[in-house]
Simulated scan of single mutants.
Amino acid sequence: MKTNSNNNTATLIHLSALSQYFIPFGNFIFPLLIWSSTKDKSENLDAQGKQVLNFQLSLFMYSLALGLIAIPIFIVTVLKNISIIEISNNDAFPIKNFNIEHINGIVIVAIIAVVLLLAIKIAEFFLILLASVKASNGEIYKYPFTIPFLK
């Protein structure tokens, strides 16, 4: 019975990372709360909690890096095509003359960064579900591309 309870708690630790879709930073807060209150009960719960937090921290770092690549490039590209006169006229959509010629190699890098960010978020959702199923069976799931911040 104790093992089944630990498996359920481990599953809850993984699934609590999905709270990010409802509560900002819920993917850090709830796994951390559950893990810190249960890590002394078993080595399995301690390992599961570390895996979840390491995965979420890794994804945060990857997302931050991709955002730091994509956002400035998009801002510069958009501002390059807006004149001060159009801004001062309070035009609702000042980019009227934007054409495909303005897309250069650096913009393609930004587009790739956005696509990678979307792929990471989709993969995160399914990896959390997979880890939850493994945890319910008593297995420790090691997320791919995870930086071991907590050892």
Rank of each mutant, 00 (worst) to 15 (best):
N27E: 08
S83C: 07
T38C: 04
G67W: 05
L32Y: 14
L15G: 01
G26P: 06
A10P: 01
L129F: 15
V115F: 11
A70C: 06
P72M: 06
V52T: 11
A113Y: 02
L68D: 09
F55A: 07
I106L: 12
E86I: 01
N44H: 12
F98C: 07
N97Y: 08
N99T: 15
I95P: 06
H102N: 12
A123S: 12
D91T: 15
S88L: 13
I69H: 03
L130Y: 08
Q48M: 08
N97H: 13
I82A: 07
K134S: 01
L117F: 12
L118W: 09
K80N: 15
S83D: 15
V107A: 13
L53F: 05
E101W: 00
L68C: 15
S37R: 06
L130P: 00
S36T: 10
A92N: 12
L53K: 01
L15Q: 02
A92S: 15
K121P: 01
I111L: 14
F25W: 09
L53E: 01
I29P: 05
V76Q: 08
I122E: 07
H14A: 01
A17Y: 03
E43C: 00
F125L: 15
L66S: 11
Q51I: 04
V76D: 09
L79H: 10
S63E: 13
E86M: 04
N54D: 10
A70V: 02
K80W: 06
I85S: 13
I75P: 02
W35I: 03
V107Q: 14
Q51D: 04
N90V: 04
A135D: 00
S36D: 06
K121R: 14
Y62S: 09
H14F: 00
A47F: 09
I120F: 11
D40K: 14
L18Y: 08
V109S: 11
N99I: 11
N27L: 04
Q20L: 09
H102L: 04
P94T: 09
L59I: 08
K41Y: 01
L127H: 13
V115R: 02
Y21E: 05
F25G: 05
F98R: 07
Q51N: 13
L127K: 10
I29K: 06
A113P: 06
A92T: 12
K96R: 13
I108D: 06
I84E: 15
I85D: 15
F60K: 07
A47R: 14
L12A: 14
I106K: 08
A70W: 04
V114W: 04
Q51W: 02
L18W: 05
N81Y: 03
L45H: 02
N44A: 08
F28R: 04
K134H: 03
I23D: 07
I73G: 00
I85C: 00
K121N: 15
I111W: 03
H14D: 02
D46K: 15
F30A: 07
D46W: 02
V78M: 10
I84C: 01
L53N: 01
L66C: 11
M61G: 10
A47N: 13
T77Q: 09
V133Y: 10
A70L: 03
N99M: 06
K121Y: 10
L118T: 14
I13S: 00
T77M: 09
S63Q: 13
S58P: 14
P94E: 08
